[in-house]
Simulated assay, not measured.
Amino acid sequence: MARLRDIVPVVHEHPLAYVIGLQGIALLQGFIGEHDREFIEARLAEVRELLADERLARPVDVTRVSTVDGYRTWSATYDDPANAAFAIDVPVVKRIVDELPAGTALDAACGTGRYAELLVERGHRVIGVDSSPEMLELARKRLPGSEFREGTLHHLPVDEVDLVVCGLALTHNPDLTPIFAEFARVLRPGGHLVIADIHPDGVLRGSIPTVRGPNGEPHRLVTYRHSMGDYVRAALAAGLTVRHCEEPQPEAPPPGSKATDVGPWDVWPWSLAALVPEAAHAAVEGQLVVWHFQRDSLRTM
């Protein structure tokens, strides 16, 4: 479970601290033999250069905001092709869903209906639920033939579905246990649950959505870092069995792709990682995690 004492309302985001942190992860891997001497010496040389880079000495204080407030702003650009996570999670989710029979499916925390559209294309009757009215409005325009309802992951206004999918939402919640219990409640015996979420290592590396406040102030959606074990324990407690787990990662950057621009805060930490691409790639143990669970066919809720 996330250490709640570490979730502070205002975060001091220091760009130098970030890039040095990536170098540190890479160097720790080198210390246990995952990289050779040339790699380690290159990282140390980069550290010396980074310490002298005045552009990295301009920190930003960032306020955490709720998902309702954050997605109200983000909804206008959420489906932008630049949202890199979409290129990673969808292929894995498709492979899992393609093996399941069509039925009644719930897209929990449906957002603009990305997964709902995928499910409709595969013959499912889809119900989408989200806490953001702005996201639901976009989902209804996207799929006028499907049903979308306002609700939360803790209180889903749905009963008896064959499949639940949930994308990039659980990290915004401090405790997974009641959410998995709610998923199990709405699933028919033998039903399936497919979850894509930010990998705990991805959260550690700052893969947290950025939004601007009404006066341009920097905000990030409140996000918690759950261990892989947190997901498994919550699922088992709800009577769900792990069927599959995958940790898709982005491809390695091409040689010579080192960026020279720190970038505006809105594209941190991704622009910062691009300053040290070899260290950043070495530090990527997982960008997303995709889980497939199944409810016990004998259990009654």
Results as ranks from 00 to 15, higher is better:
residue 2 A to C: 05
residue 10 V to R: 14
residue 10 V to Q: 11
residue 35 H to Y: 14
residue 43 R to Y: 04
residue 44 L to I: 11
residue 47 V to P: 02
residue 50 L to K: 05
residue 52 A to D: 14
residue 56 L to R: 10
residue 63 T to E: 14
residue 68 V to H: 04
residue 71 Y to H: 08
residue 71 Y to P: 01
residue 72 R to G: 15
residue 72 R to W: 05
residue 91 P to W: 05
residue 96 I to S: 03
residue 100 L to I: 11
residue 105 A to M: 03
residue 113 G to A: 12
residue 113 G to N: 09
residue 115 Y to L: 15
residue 115 Y to C: 08
residue 116 A to F: 04
residue 119 L to D: 00
residue 130 D to V: 12
residue 138 L to K: 13
residue 139 A to G: 13
residue 143 L to A: 06
residue 149 R to A: 10
residue 150 E to S: 14
residue 160 E to I: 03
residue 164 V to D: 02
residue 166 C to H: 02
residue 166 C to F: 05
residue 168 L to Q: 11
residue 173 N to S: 10
residue 188 R to A: 13
residue 189 P to Y: 10
residue 194 V to L: 04
residue 200 P to D: 09
residue 204 L to A: 15
residue 205 R to L: 15
residue 210 T to F: 11
residue 211 V to R: 05
residue 216 G to W: 11
residue 216 G to C: 12
residue 222 V to C: 08
residue 224 Y to I: 00
residue 227 S to R: 14
residue 233 R to C: 00
residue 248 P to R: 11
residue 268 W to M: 03
residue 270 W to E: 04
residue 271 S to M: 00
residue 275 L to R: 01
residue 279 A to T: 06
residue 284 V to F: 01
residue 285 E to K: 07
residue 285 E to S: 13
residue 288 L to Y: 13
residue 288 L to H: 09
residue 290 V to D: 04
residue 290 V to S: 04
residue 298 L to E: 13
residue 300 T to E: 14
